[in-house]
Simulated scan of single mutants.
Amino acid sequence: MRLYLTALKPTDSVTDGFLPAARALGCDVTILTDRPERHPGAIGCDVRDPRALIDAIAHLGRPDAIFSNSDHLQVETALAADYFGLPGKDWRACLAAKNKFLTRRALAEAGVERVRSLRLGPGDPVPDGLAYPLVVKPREGVASEDVMLVESDLAGAVAGIRRRRPGETLVVEEYLEGPLRTLETLGDASGVRVLGGFETTLGPLPHFVEERLDWSPARPDGHVLAALRALGVGFGACHTEYVVTPAGPRVVEVNYRVIGDHCDFLLADLLGVPLFEWILRAHLGEPVPAVPEPRGHGSAVSLVADRSGTITAAPAEEAVVTGDVRLWHRPLRSVGEVVERTHTNRDFLGVIRAVGPDRDRVEAAIGGYRAARPWVIE
């Protein structure tokens, strides 16, 4: 079986998740990327252009599957899969999910939910008279970059983002107050399976840095699944974030790929299944198996820089067993590296994921590890 995987920069999800899974399935993998120097054995291609992507694949040989886990390449990859008649996502759904303005419009037109929202093009004036608080964000942003809560001066917030991101379109919407949750799904040709979800803990406002996620397997009331259907999202892996407001769940954003920040590995640990293989099997035209009931509790804690400076001490990559809790630490930075604090997910120094019988024991293991092996910035 020949699998083409489109990618931009290397990620742990691809390097340690999908590539080993593809090998386990017996796939002959070709990585297509605009950064071939960063992927061993990869082939250079303008993967942001579906015409170039289709041309490259046609030249290299008939595919059995075309797949991407990149936020930025879902539309292009879906178009290529459709061209070759392969299982894949609907490119329209990929576009509507990635573009936060289109997400809001599609959900409103379907009558699923209405969240006050407007689009600000690069030259559009900032309107007066909007009801605060508001959230302003890049229309197609990732990693919480330039996502801000605004309580009084929208024009000033927009001007600051435009200085950092000239030429980009922004979205301004009402602030959704309440607990932040995720829904993880995996679909095949027959329908969508709910894998579970997480409770998300954010850092201090006005920024929206996701500092930890804790397993929360309770099924949603159907609102989020209805929103996904309205967007056309179903096939393959999807990570949806939503807020439980006093008026009910409201979608924050739909990320049409598997959850990141090592929560994909945590999800596989909790379910006890080869999750990355399951996702690839769907793209190879195979059915998704029945989802087992998870056992125990799991948490993923991002170790966030609280200041700018130089990293002078840090724990290594390791796996630790503490009683009946399994814990993994993955450093994302190195000793000697200079950190410039950005108030985004780019401030992550490392991530801890842990699985155990219950939340108390998992929390105790994480706390003990952090106390014994701190990251130090000076």
Rank of each mutant, 00 (worst) to 15 (best):
M1R: 14
R2C: 09
P10E: 10
D12Q: 10
D12N: 12
T15M: 11
D16N: 11
G17K: 03
F18G: 09
L19M: 10
A22W: 10
C27V: 07
T30D: 08
T33R: 12
H39S: 00
C45E: 03
V47D: 10
R48G: 02
R51D: 14
A56Y: 04
A56F: 09
H59K: 06
H59C: 05
R62C: 13
P63G: 13
S68Y: 07
D71S: 14
L73T: 05
V75G: 04
T77H: 08
P87W: 01
A93C: 10
A96K: 13
A97K: 08
A97I: 08
K98P: 00
K98V: 00
K98Q: 06
N99W: 04
N99E: 10
K100Y: 06
L102Y: 09
V112R: 10
P122K: 11
P125K: 09
A131F: 02
L134S: 08
V136C: 03
K137G: 11
G141W: 03
V142M: 13
A143R: 07
D146L: 11
V147C: 10
L149H: 09
S152P: 02
S152T: 13
L154K: 12
I161V: 15
R163Q: 12
R165G: 11
E168A: 06
V171N: 03
V171T: 09
V172T: 08
E173N: 02
L176R: 12
G178D: 06
L180K: 00
R181G: 00
S190A: 15
G191R: 09
V192Q: 11
E199D: 12
T201I: 10
T201G: 03
P206I: 06
V209F: 02
E210K: 05
E211G: 15
R212G: 12
L213K: 08
D214Q: 07
R219V: 12
G222T: 07
H223S: 13
A227D: 02
A230I: 06
G232C: 03
C238K: 03
H239S: 03
V243W: 05
A247Y: 02
G248M: 11
R250F: 05
R250I: 08
V251L: 12
V254D: 00
H262M: 09
H262I: 08
L266K: 07
D269S: 02
V273H: 04
V273D: 04
L275T: 00
E277D: 12
W278F: 01
I279C: 07
L280F: 04
A282E: 05
V288N: 00
V288G: 01
P292E: 02
P294E: 05
V301A: 09
L303N: 01
A313D: 15
A319M: 11
V320F: 15
V321N: 04
G323R: 13
D324N: 14
D324T: 13
V325S: 02
L327A: 05
W328S: 07
L332G: 10
L332C: 05
R333M: 13
E337D: 07
V338W: 15
T342L: 14
N345K: 07
I352D: 00
R359E: 15
D360M: 08
I366N: 04
G367V: 09
Y369R: 09
R370C: 14
A371T: 03
W375Y: 14
I377S: 01
